[in-house]
């Protein structure tokens, strides 16, 4: 497909990525299918997000998680999509998160809009966002057991877990 008809960030100078690298030395800039990505360990995520916001990324458009069960050594990857309106470019932050300690710092203090997205990530994958003001289930019922988007969560034949379901009979 020709490049000009594809959505995607406008190719900009990489001064911004370099300045982010200076602010957070553990961050590694990379390219993935034509997009700018930064890989960073979980402990530096909040610092990187603060630097990115100061650098002009006003909006956190998306936070999600990928479960690489059986594909990668580190099972989860938290994916943060940032958008800069003034520079018209996107930046994706990839944070590997091990299964044993699925905790990353919350981005709500930096981007308030991360609230719902982090709740969804917690609900679906069981990733804990340290410092989130209200880390509860958002889409599944409160008393649901398990995190449905994990790849070892079976698709079919889930017993009904809704509150007071037995009383209906």
């Amino acid at each position: 497909m020709s490049g000009d008809s594809l959505p995607g960030p406008v190719a900009g100078s990489d001064e911004m990525l370099a300045s982010l690298g200076e602010a957070v030395p553990s961050a590694e800039a990379d390219r993935s299918t034509g997009d700018d990505v930064i890989r960073v360990p979980a402990r530096d995520l909040a610092r990187l997000a603060e630097a990115a916001r100061a650098g002009g990324f006003e909006m956190c458009s998306d936070i999600t998680v990928v479960d690489y069960l059986g594909v990668r050594r580190v099972r989860f990857e938290v994916v943060v999509n940032l958008l800069s309106l003034q520079h018209n470019r996107r930046l994706r932050i990839l944070v590997p998160v091990p299964e044993g300690d699925p905790e990353v710092p919350s981005l709500v203090p930096v981007y308030p809009g991360a609230n719902f997205m982090e709740r969804e990530a917690y609900d679906m994958f069981g990733i804990r966002f340290a410092g989130h003001p209200d880390l509860t289930r958002i889409l599944m019922p409160d008393d649901w057991v398990g995190h449905p988007l994990r790849r070892d969560f079976d698709v079919g034949a889930v017993p009904v877990q809704f509150k007071a379901a037995h009383r209906v009979r």
């Binding site: 594809l6 959505p7 995607g8 993935s32 299918t33 034509g34 997009d35 458009s61 998306d62 999600t64 990928v66 594909v71 994916v79 999509n81 958008l83 996107r90 994706r92």
Partner: peptide
């Protein structure tokens, strides 16, 4: 294999699709 994020302008705002292929 790869991962990508694509966004378009839907009537309600930015509609994005984050797709990971193995």
């Amino acid at each position: 294999a790869g991962e990508t994020y694509v966004a378009i302008e839907a009537p309600r705002g930015e509609l994005g699709c984050y797709l990971v292929s193995d």
